[in-house]
């Protein structure tokens, strides 16, 4: 198989994920786009591992091992990311990242979510 096929597909998927990360508003859709980018990297790793296993007689199989590690790290990332998104949604009432402009509770934080926000910060 020509190596260009998986490499080009991986580049296109990465660019699609890049567009999604930059253009989406909902934080969960941004996480989906991040998953697309990670999968593009995985495809690259697998393709080059299969190529080098035969062409350079690579017995280490670093591409496949790194793919498995990437998948595990992506699983951890999606868990933590969703937990953060849920905490933000509980405190601010929105998961729209265009509206999350301040990194701390402002002076208008006297709404009912503020108590929960302080508590979450204390526990985190």
């Amino acid at each position: 198989m020509h190596l260009v096929y998986p490499a080009v597909l991986s580049a296109l998927l990465f660019s699609t994920g890049l567009y999604g990360v930059l253009a989406r508003r909902n934080a969960i859709l941004v996480l989906m786009s991040v998953e697309l980018m990670l999968n593009a990297v995985n495809l690259n790793l697998v393709a080059f591992d299969v190529w080098l296993a035969r062409a350079a007689r690579d017995t280490l199989h670093s591409g496949q091992a790194l793919t498995l590690f990437t998948i595990a790290v992506a699983a951890a990332e999606i868990g933590i990311g969703l937990a953060i998104v849920l905490a933000v949604y509980r405190n601010r009432g929105t998961s729209d990242i265009d509206k999350l402009r301040d990194t701390a509770e402002g002076p208008d934080g006297a709404e009912p979510g503020a108590v929960a926000a302080q508590k979450t910060e204390a526990t985190a």
Binding site: A76, E77, G79, I80, A83, T123
Partner: peptide, 12 residues
């Protein structure tokens, strides 16, 4: 990550 997700997402 498991512990962190639980800590982050438990309801205050």
């Amino acid at each position: 990550a498991l512990v962190g997700a639980i800590v982050l997402s438990r309801k205050a």
